[in-house]
């Protein structure tokens, strides 16, 4: 039932953006940004429910807690990067959006290096 409210909000935002673009105001992309924010903020609580279930399942499966928290951090960084780069695409600044995406990728790779090293050591241990 939540989805109907979100669809209505998105539609109304789209109309507002069109009207503002017609009036050639600079606030059109900002209204689009706020519309996106409202939609995300209304479903963000589902994130925490899903992640608490995932972390409890991972704990039962014997996964190390550090791996799971790293996974959550990577998801969060990926989401924030995608959020900001899509807004810049809306405004037409594709070069800036590519730079933000590059920065997000670099941060994620830098954060997941220890896990990759751990994996290699594990494989090396198996082969030796």
């Amino acid at each position: 039932m939540e989805i109907f409210r979100i669809a209505a909000i998105a539609l109304i935002t789209a109309f507002c953006v069109l009207v503002l673009r017609e009036a050639k105001s600079e606030l059109a992309p900002i209204v689009a940004l706020v519309g996106g924010l409202v939609v995300v903020l209304s479903v963000i609580n589902y994130f925490s429910d899903v992640f608490s279930v995932i972390s409890s399942v991972a704990k039962k499966a014997g996964l190390a807690a550090s791996v799971v928290t790293l996974l959550f951090k990577v998801i969060a960084i990926g989401y924030v990067t995608e959020f900001s780069s899509s807004i810049m695409d809306d405004m037409g600044l594709s070069s800036l959006s590519d730079k933000v995406t590059l920065a997000g990728k670099l941060i994620i790779v830098a954060m997941s290096l220890p896990i990759v090293v751990q994996l290699f050591n594990f494989i090396a241990g198996l082969l030796a």
């Binding site: 900002i30 994130f47 969060a76």
Partner: peptide, 30 residues
């Protein structure tokens, strides 16, 4: 007038973005 409108709207938007990032921090436990 354009600048004034832009500034007032940006102040509203910045509060919402701050709220989003705080929620993300608490939800993802970063």
């Amino acid at each position: 007038v354009t600048l004034a409108g832009l500034v007032t709207v940006l102040i509203m938007v910045i509060n919402m973005i701050g709220q989003l990032f705080d929620t993300l921090k608490t939800v993802f436990g970063m």
